[in-house]
């Protein structure tokens, strides 16, 4: 009996040691940021903030930590959920601290390194300057930046992680945002069936989806430009005008009234509801809008006036194509999971 126990103990250690050798050096196996070859040049300046394992781990911990909010209740991950491509699943507008509501739909976070503007009105021009917006917004996380930095500085785990990632003895604003950018910049989505098709696997899309792809290229691609499915510009798409002035809020130009940033359509199937205010619950509703429900207005994009002239069948075919942009690998990648 005793010999059997020793045998079991030995077996346990052998298994354990083998399990350890698999992950012998996570630093070495961490690949950092690698741009897909079919994507355009990145906009993010990686030379100023290269992604490394320590910075990524820190950014991920911060992303999922309620410490960023005034009362610890809201993290970035509360409204940016992986299964929805880091949008807020089934929420029309953002839902923050003390059950307060924002006025816009929480956008997806993916392929951030190619983004020229952040937020629906593009008021933020750099990814590093984005986190301070939800962190200090009274209806989102409602924290003050100096308070947050003191909380992080009082936490020995965070201090050690900032030291490791940025060689800083105390946590400062620049390192905080750079860590969050390192995490967000790793959120690459380029492994959908559409991407497989682009890489030469012609059977990755069905015939119906290929018809949808052709229609998309003719009708939608001028704004939702492949392969990122956005032109990084602002358009009035003929929604009912509201108190939200859109791009004009930040440019103070009448020519920008009711214009919003073109959202990427990658993972669009999983990031409902749609539009800046979450007004469209389904892709069917969105396509119907573009086909026949464009409202007139002085700043409405001229390409949309009178609608896109899509039949019901064509709308369905475009939707079939849009669903091929779902990147299950990205949506379930454990490196990004809470």
């Amino acid at each position: 009996m005793r010999a059997f126990k020793i045998f079991l103990a030995c077996l346990f250690f052998i298994v354990l040691s083998q399990a350890c050798t698999k992950e012998i050096n996570p630093e070495a196996s961490f690949k950092g940021f690698e741009a897909p070859i079919n994507f355009p040049l990145v906009r993010y300046n990686f030379s100023a903030n290269p992604v490394n394992k320590a910075g990524f781990d820190l950014g991920k911990k911060l992303f999922y930590d309620g410490i960023l909010s005034r009362d610890g209740s809201i993290s970035c991950g509360s409204c940016h959920q992986q299964a929805a491509a880091f949008a807020h699943l089934d929420h029309t507008i953002s839902h923050g601290i003390d059950d307060k509501l924002g006025n816009r739909n929480a956008p997806v976070l993916q392929n951030t390194a190619w983004q020229k503007y952040f937020a629906w009105d593009g008021g933020i021009f750099h990814l590093d300057e984005f986190p301070i917006n939800p962190i200090t917004n009274p209806v989102e996380m409602d924290e003050k930046m100096p308070e947050l930095l003191s909380k992080l500085n009082a936490n020995s785990t965070y201090r050690a992680m900032f030291k490791k990632a940025f060689n800083k003895d105390s946590v400062d604003y620049a390192s905080l945002t750079m860590a969050l950018s390192q995490f967000m910049n790793m959120l690459l989505s380029n492994q959908s069936r559409y991407d497989e098709y682009l890489r030469g696997n012609t059977s990755a899309l069905s015939e119906n989806e290929k018809v949808g792809l052709n229609l998309f290229m003719n009708k939608c691609n001028s704004c939702h430009t492949a392969p990122l499915f956005t032109d990084n510009k602002f358009h009035n798409t003929g929604l009912i005008t509201s108190s939200d002035l859109g791009r004009a809020t930040v440019t103070v130009q009448d020519s920008d009234l009711y214009k919003f940033k073109t959202p990427s359509l990658r993972n669009v199937e999983k990031s409902y509801p749609y539009n800046h205010n979450g007004r469209a619950a389904t892709l069917e509703a969105v396509l119907k809008h573009y086909a026949s429900e464009i409202k007139p207005g002085t700043t409405v994009d001229s390409r949309l006036i009178g609608g896109l002239g899509l039949t019901a069948l064509e709308q369905q075919q475009i939707i079939a194509f849009l669903k091929t942009l779902t990147d299950t690998h990205f949506l379930t990648d454990s490196r990004f999971s809470e």
């Binding site: 100023a48 937020a119 008021g123 933020i124 590093d128 300057e129 301070i132 917006n133 200090t136 917004n137 003050k144 930046m145 100096p146 930095l149 400062d172 604003y173 620049a174 905080l176 945002t177 750079m178 809020t249 930040v250």
Partner: peptide, 21 residues
């Protein structure tokens, strides 16, 4: 942000003198 320190540090001195939106 790393080049906006001192009076311009939005994590300290300039925290309430900055538009985040």
């Amino acid at each position: 942000a790393s080049a906006r320190t001192g009076a311009l540090n939005v994590g300290a001195a300039a925290a309430d003198m900055y538009w985040t939106w």
